[in-house]
Simulated scan of single mutants.
Amino acid sequence: MTAPIRVLVCDDQALIRTGFATIIDAQPDMEVVGECGDGRAAVDLARRLSPDIVVMDVRMPVLDGIEATRLLAGAGVEHPVKVLVVTTFNLDEYVYEALRAGAGGFLLKDAPPAQLLHGIRTVATGAALLAPEVTRQLVGRYASRIRPTEGTPDDTALTPRELEVLRLIADGQSNSEIAATLVISQETVKTYVSRILTKLGLRDRVQAVVYAYRRGLVT
């Protein structure tokens, strides 16, 4: 049997933390290995318990979720831990910073249980999870902060089809949705995504979204 996904739940609201833990522990392929109420405790517990993934709140005492994510999953971390950030719409700006800090994805706190569980399974496998509605809200509200970097995008690095796929990724589309949009197979989409990440030196789809917006490839 495959070992269950080991999850650490971090949220300063005990009711939400307990609710998440109850839902997660009820799954045959998951187990909650720890709970905590602040970012510093999350970092300490993660280093001690070695979970497969941390479900991380953003606004917390002692150390916020953004800095905790950076310490657990940011560039240069020797043994990075996958992080799934949970937030609300009025924290969009913080979500963007959390993604830059290394989070593997994010969801809304009021997402249904099935979406939370899907998010945990997705990020735990090394893939990235983007909630399309949050992505659009984030970009719409903070467009002034997400400006193209100096210079022009390196259009020669990607083929026209790869650029098209990148724009659809940035729009929050899943592989199956991209396949339907472009009328190609999901395997072909996976190949394009892999090539895009390799050519641009990106870790995952989350970084691809940030790259696309910062480079002005989407509006």
Rank of each mutant, 00 (worst) to 15 (best):
Y213H: 14
V81T: 15
T152M: 12
G34K: 07
L108V: 13
S144Q: 13
E35G: 04
I146W: 03
E78G: 03
A180S: 12
I16N: 05
K82T: 11
L15Y: 08
A128C: 00
L202Y: 02
I169F: 00
L63T: 14
G34F: 04
S174W: 06
A68H: 11
T159V: 05
A73R: 11
A68R: 08
D154Q: 10
A114M: 06
T2L: 10
L129Y: 12
L117R: 04
P80C: 05
R195K: 11
T152S: 15
Q137D: 12
V62H: 12
D44F: 01
V85I: 15
G102P: 09
A208S: 04
L130R: 01
A179V: 08
A124V: 07
L72K: 09
Q115G: 01
T22D: 12
V209N: 03
I146Y: 02
I184Y: 00
R100M: 07
A114V: 09
P148V: 12
P153D: 11
A68P: 12
L91C: 11
K190Y: 00
A208D: 06
L72P: 14
Y213L: 06
E97R: 15
E164M: 01
Y142K: 06
R215N: 15
V189R: 07
A75F: 00
A212Y: 00
R215H: 15
G102T: 07
I66G: 10
G102M: 04
R203D: 08
V77A: 05
D11F: 04
D171G: 00
P153L: 10
T191D: 03
G19R: 01
D12N: 13
V139F: 14
A46Y: 04
A98Y: 08
A101P: 05
F20M: 15
I24P: 08
A111K: 05
G140H: 07
D38R: 01
R6L: 08
A101M: 05
I178C: 00
H79P: 06
T198L: 05
I196Q: 08
K109S: 15
V86E: 13
P80V: 06
E93N: 08
D25N: 15
V189G: 06
